[in-house]
Every structure is written in C-alpha cells, then in structure tokens.
C-alpha cells in the first residue's frame, strides 16, 4: 500500500517537474525570440530611417573643401535627379564664385578656357584636388589652348 502511494507520488512529481521544465523552456524560447526580435526591429527601423537621408552635392558659397567633401547643406533635400543636377550647377557656380573671390587672376584665366576644360577643372575640384593644383591646372590648360 505504502509502496503504491510512493510510486504514485513519484509519478506525480515527475509529471509536475516535466510540466515546469516544459513551461520554463517555452518561456525561455519566447523570451529569447522577443529579445532577438526587438534587436531586429531596431535594426530594421534604423535601415528604414537611413533610407530617408539622401546625399546631395551642393557646396556652400565659401566652400574650400572640394570634391567629395560636402557640408551640412548637402545632407538635406530629396533624391530627385533634377534636384541633383541643380545641385551640381549650383556647386559649379559656387566654385566659380570662390575662384572669383579669392583667386581673381586665376578666375580670369578660367574664363578664357573652353567649356570642356572648365568642366574638367570643376570635376577635379569635386574630386577633392587642392586649390593650388586646380590653379596650376587652369594655367596649364590655358597654355595648351
């Protein structure tokens, strides 16, 4: 009789323990996936936000950092191609006004260059070439012309 009760109690304990373990396992898995999901959610939200930022190539009026260097103004704006073209045009205008303001003599030479050479010089400026080299290039293109 006692042996039967002990067996029954042992079975009950075993069932209880396996239920508890099963419950803990489920809670653990759910908890882990919740954490993993929240990390994934954060990364997804970040990626979605990053898609809202676009790079523009506008240069501020007094830019002295040419090429891929951009200033804050370049961060804003929309990703429309037409706006990018406008941005490039304004960047070139800024480059020319920079030349005119700080290197008037060189600007005079630049004005005498054909459009192809002017574009070439501007492209160099956008690529980040220093102003000394830009000025030398203008003179060299003028001599070749």
């Amino acid at each position: 009789m006692e042996g039967g009760a002990a067996l029954h109690s042992w079975r009950w304990n075993r069932q209880f323990l396996s239920s508890v373990l099963g419950f803990l396992l489920v809670v653990g898995i759910l908890g882990y996936s919740a954490v993993a999901l929240s990390a994934d959610d954060y990364l997804s939200a970040l990626e979605a936000e990053a898609g809202k930022v676009d790079v523009e190539l506008n240069e501020p009026d007094s830019a002295t950092n040419p090429g891929t260097v951009s200033q804050s103004a370049e961060q804003g704006g929309q990703a429309l191609q037409s706006q990018k073209k406008e941005g490039l045009a304004s960047q070139r205008a800024n480059f020319e006004s920079l030349l005119k303001k700080h290197y008037f003599g060189t600007y005079g030479f630049y004005r005498k260059l054909p459009e192809r050479s002017r574009q070439e010089v501007f492209e160099e400026y956008r690529r980040g070439v220093g102003m000394d080299k830009i000025r030398k290039k203008i003179v060299s293109r003028l001599l070749q012309h």
């Binding site: 959610d41 939200a45 930022v53 009026d61 007094s62 950092n65 200033q71 804050s72 961060q75 804003g76």
Partner: peptide, 30 residues
C-alpha cells in the same frame, strides 16, 4: 589619407534642411 579643412558654412542665410532638420522622430526607438 586626405587633409580636410573643417569649417563652418559661411553663408549667413544658411538653414539646415532635410532629414537632420526634423525635430520629431518615432519614440521608441528614436
């Protein structure tokens, strides 16, 4: 590998535009 001059935009009428001019973002997570 390139020397970059860090300076401020010199245009006195310059205003920040675009994404970084926004004041509100969804919280959480931002």
């Amino acid at each position: 590998g390139r020397s970059i001059r860090v300076q401020r935009v010199q245009d006195p009428d310059y205003e920040l535009k675009g994404y970084f001019a926004k004041t509100a973002r969804k919280c959480p997570p931002f």
